[in-house]
Design a protein around this nucleic acid. Structure first.
Lengths: 221, 221
DNA sequence: GGGAATATTCCC
DNA sequence: GGGAATATTCCC
């Protein structure tokens, strides 16, 4: 095995200790070389772990195996003796095979690849979102002031129109006399009725001022 | 020393081993109890470090001290013998004083306080910003459709008013005859002139249509 | 099986 | 002195 500088210590240690023929009795390759076996966990923990690592906990060893993508091989109580508690433990990784140390370099740690990228993306996205939100906010202010202008102008226009009508009615002049089409045509359609047709046809004079007043209130407040 | 569950193992170990009177010969409090001394680095590394930690490197011990905010005390060659290479090493922390174990809880790791919070804030803020941006976007759509409504209605009203004026002028009726005050009073003030006074006073009839046409174009497109 | 805190190593 | 990778522990 060529010890590349970018090969994690855990992997080279694992390879070394599974290759070590002195411990084949309780830690060795499986028959077909596709996985490795811990045949005696007690001896493995006491005799091997402290020799290669800074601990003697099976859990920490397994945590590292999981960190590098190894999977426990399940023995579904077939022909294996004493399965209950301290039976043999088997681990497997598609790039950890007997006689194929050239595959080892494909084994990657799960933290080294994922965590840093997420943080970088988080920072970039944060910047993008903030600047985008600021632009929307600025545009919103522009729109709101434009809206306020239009609202005010609209109120004034309604007032104008109503005063025109009042003036004409006071002069006993028929409003729609010389007109070919309705006075208020909404460009976007039917939602609002034609105010003046409505007034002239249906409203008595006493109702006219109330109608105009309500209309104005809608636009001024 | 009360071993709180939130006290890092490194700090309680450090306190224990500096308090240990058996090792006062080469690892102990300074005279005034404001700092601690490594009088014999060789013995400290070989006899103490592996007993309390999972290593025997002075560098790793110092790395942890720095991680928890301890500072090396500089001896600027005053009265101290053999300063050159393996002289005594002294470390100090404002919350690590002889006889004051109650201060220990104020010592914080530099990573445990800064890194996780940044990430948590990043996540929380991300959620807040996104939901806030969505609300702004929704409101913006409401405002824009309201604006579009008003714009259209405003155009229609200008059209109405202009047609009134045209009608009145065609009937040779003086527009401002019976009025006590200007026709177009903007509620928010002076920005826009009184259109009709302007027209009546200054515009010849030929200019009136052009003026109204421009006004309408502004609101319809 | 894996997230996250703490520890150790490596490196500037 | 401290940033960052890897290792070990603790916990769900």
């Amino acid at each position: 095995m060529k010890q590349n500088s970018n090969m994690p210590a855990f992997l080279s240690k694992l390879w070394t200790l599974v290759e070590d023929t002195h411990t084949n009795e309780f830690f060795t390759w499986s028959q077909n070389g596709q996985s490795f076996l811990v045949l005696d966990e007690q001896r493995f923990v006491k005799e091997i772990l402290p020799k290669y690592f800074k601990h003697n906990n099976m859990a920490s060893f397994v945590r590292q195996l999981n960190m590098y993508g190894f999977c426990k091989v399940l023995h579904i109580g077939s022909g294996i003796v004493k399965q209950e508690r301290d039976g043999p433990v088997e681990f497997q990784h598609s790039y950890f095979k007997q006689g194929q140390d050239d595959l080892l370099e494909n084994i990657k740690s799960k933290v080294s690849s994922s965590k840093p990228e997420e943080n970088k993306i988080c920072q970039e996205d944060l910047t993008k979102i903030i600047s985008s939100a600021q632009k929307v906010q600025i545009k919103q202010e522009t729109i709101e002031s434009r809206l306020s202008e239009l609202k005010s102008e609209n109120g004034s226009l309604w007032k104008e129109v109503s005063e025109f009508i009042v003036m004409l009615l006071q002069n006993n002049q028929p409003v729609s006399l010389k007109r070919k089409r309705p006075l208020l045509l909404n460009t976007n359609g039917a939602q609002k009725k034609n105010l003046f047709q409505h007034i002239i046809v249906k409203s008595p004079r006493s109702g006219l001022y109330m109608y105009i007043f309500i209309k104005m209130m809608n636009y001024l407040f």
